[in-house]
Computed example of a mutant assay.
Amino acid sequence: MIFKKQPGFDAIVGSMTPDGDGFNVDILPAWKQGRTAYGGLTSGLALAACQKSVSDLPPLRSANINFIGPVDDRATFTATVLRKGRNVTTVKVVATTDKGTAADIVFTFGVTRKSDLTVDYPIIDAPKPQDCKRFTPKIAEPIVPKFFLRFETKLIDGARPMSGADRGYIRAWSRHSDVNSREGIASLMTLSDVLPPAALPMFKKMGPVSSVNFLLNFLVDAPKTTDGWWQVETSLSAAQNGYSSQVMRIYNYDGELVCEGMQMVAIFI
């Protein structure tokens, strides 16, 4: 498909151009989800703009992402330091288009400290990526959101959307298709929202959904993995009144939990 030939995340970050206090970037069709940019791309570009604007940041600890309006063909990302303390630096990034504010994101960076407390959330054993089936069969590629083809994703457990499953759960391996886009925290941020909403496997018909917000907490200083592969899972916690809440976790290839998050999704089905 023609979309597979379009630039990966690394190239898009490289194309960001300064504009006053912010950075302009064109959103390519291959990175769209309906009429807006894929939410992970918006989040990743916001972090890239933050990194370009603010020097000497400690490791990223948390990202609080609010999706406000569509990020269409062109957007500007502007970073503002809210506070730079001895241990924690807080930076706000606003994404705007010609229609107004599209996303409001707060990143929290914090220095590493020694602690007597270490608690992990153990991973469930999984087959290697090469032993798992493609999440999207070839025949289904024309109907999945365009951005999804920017990633290689393999199903480990759970169910695909619209399969009428008895629970909302998806667990998969995923990595950027573009080899040059597999390194760095902004790359991981972009991949973090790759899976469909956890509620979708429970439906038997298609319909629109839209991310409302996204909270991610990073648990290691500099997340790394092997060959770009991350194990991503999303689990439905509750759903009613047209909204769902889900818990999300990302592990590296060796099974280390690198970040944990929660997301609200608006459901129009």
Rank of each mutant, 00 (worst) to 15 (best):
G164A: 02
G164R: 01
G164Y: 10
A165S: 14
D166R: 10
R167K: 15
R167C: 11
G168I: 10
G168A: 08
Y169F: 12
Y169E: 05
I170K: 08
I170A: 08
I170Y: 00
R175P: 06
H176R: 05
H176C: 04
S177F: 10
S177I: 12
D178G: 03
D178M: 07
V179P: 09
R182G: 06
R182I: 02
R182Y: 08
R182S: 00
E183M: 12
E183G: 07
G184N: 13
A186K: 04
A186R: 05
S187N: 02
S187T: 14
S187W: 08
L188M: 12
L188K: 05
L188A: 08
M189V: 14
M189S: 13
M189A: 14
M189P: 00
M189C: 10
M189W: 02
S192K: 00
V194T: 15
V194C: 14
P197L: 01
P197T: 08
P197H: 03
P197M: 05
A198N: 12
A198D: 03
L200N: 09
L200T: 12
P201F: 06
P201Y: 01
F203S: 13
K204W: 06
K204M: 13
K205C: 05
G207K: 06
P208Y: 14
P208F: 03
P208H: 03
S210A: 15
S210L: 13
S211M: 09
S211K: 00
S211N: 13
V212K: 11
V212L: 14
N213W: 00
F214P: 01
F214Y: 13
F214H: 15
F214I: 00
L215E: 15
L216Q: 13
L216I: 08
L216F: 02
N217V: 03
N217M: 10
F218K: 02
L219T: 09
A222Y: 06
A222R: 14
P223Q: 01
T226M: 12
T226D: 14
D227W: 00
D227A: 10
G228P: 10
G228F: 02
W230P: 03
W230E: 05
Q231A: 07
V232R: 03
E233H: 07
